[in-house]
Design a protein around this nucleic acid. Structure first.
Lengths: 104, 104
DNA sequence: ATCGTTCATCGTAAATATACGATAAGGAGG
DNA sequence: CCTCCTTATCGTATATTTACGATGAACGAT
């Protein structure tokens, strides 16, 4: 954003937009799907399933962590990522509330 | 995106990410809310309720139109915007499907 | 026909996002 | 300690987004 105007909006609007932003790239949708297959959680395994370089996947993981949809836990030299189901539920509820208020 | 990699993902992932992108700015969330108050639909009225310049609001409206969440109908010199409830419902369902598949 | 109103689009500047190679940081195992 | 493996971060290039003033296009009214 050019000159930060976000403070002109309500906290709800900003929060919801932020969640949507985290979901606004197919790579991040795919990562969430991969993590929901509880068999896979190691960062390296995720990278293998993605058509992107390791550094790029790491960036997407960081964005998902930023909004709290996933967590990363260090296991020796590896990192095990998992969904934060509480946060996911909250994100779903926020989106649903908006849709209900707005139309359906 | 640097080198377009989106084709590496599934149509579902791309479509969902696209919907999320449309929702990923507080201004656009606010516009949807404003339009759900059926009293307001003229572009000018929307602009007055937004903390942004007319040109910027027009850009946000265009993005919402691009994904089909709203429609614009010319009424003389003015333009009346309204939600596309069918598309909104579809967007909600797509998001819900993802959440259900992924966690909740 | 001219004028004012309304809104989209153009042009542009700055911020942010996306992507990747290279490198750093940390642990495992010799 | 040294090396390998794993992952985050840095540096960087490019694309996209956001924002606004200026301009253009379309219409209604005078």
């Amino acid at each position: 954003m050019n000159r930060l105007k976000k403070y002109e909006f309500s906290a709800d609007e900003i929060e919801l937009a932020d969640i949507a932003k985290a979901l606004s790239h197919p790579a991040r949708i795919k990562i969430l799907k991969i993590l929901s297959n509880k068999n896979v959680c190691m960062c390296g395994d995720i990278v293998e399933l993605m058509p992107l370089a390791q550094a790029t996947v790491s960036q997407h993981l960081k964005e998902l962590k930023r909004v709290g949809l996933i967590q990363g836990e260090i296991e020796g030299p590896k990192v095990c990522y998992c969904l934060d189901n509480v946060k996911m539920e909250k994100a779903k509820e926020s989106l649903m509330k908006m849709f209900k208020k707005v139309c359906c």
